[in-house]
Amino acid sequence: MRHTISVLVTNEFGVLSRISGLFSGRGFNIESLSVAETLDPHVSRMTIVTSGDDKVLEQINKQLNKLINVIKVYDFTGEDHIERELALVKVNITADSRAEILSIVDIFRAKVVDVSPRTYTIEITGDEEKISALTELLRPFGIKEIVRTGRIAMARSPKQK
């Protein structure tokens, strides 16, 4: 099963390599990873998408916590949360296809961020399914390049007081 976990770490050099080394050394999967500073500049957040059974996830959680630089580990699985990825898609255009592509972009609430005589570059954010759906629809027109970020996630706030 896939899990999105959020890891708060001290913002020091070498921390990324400790985390990725832990995953490779113990045979855990990393499907995606994104890192950036938090509100507190001494702390970074890593959002890691990984997979494994309960036993593996328990070990991932404990092993991460064992690293001196790790402050907190949070698994979003089973929690109400928002997940987002961002992708840039460079797609071929022709006089005939332009309008159709723009309407797809519109439907997905994506936007065209760069235009050349032969290509559009489209920016889309959303969860993984949404981005995959867009790329599937664009594929017949000829996708020249895709760049995707890793997934980021945030817990939803409780709706009642």
Partner: peptide, 14 residues
Amino acid sequence: IVGITRPCTKHNYL
């Protein structure tokens, strides 16, 4: 050596 010993130390520093 910090890179080399990362997986076999409890922690290390440069």
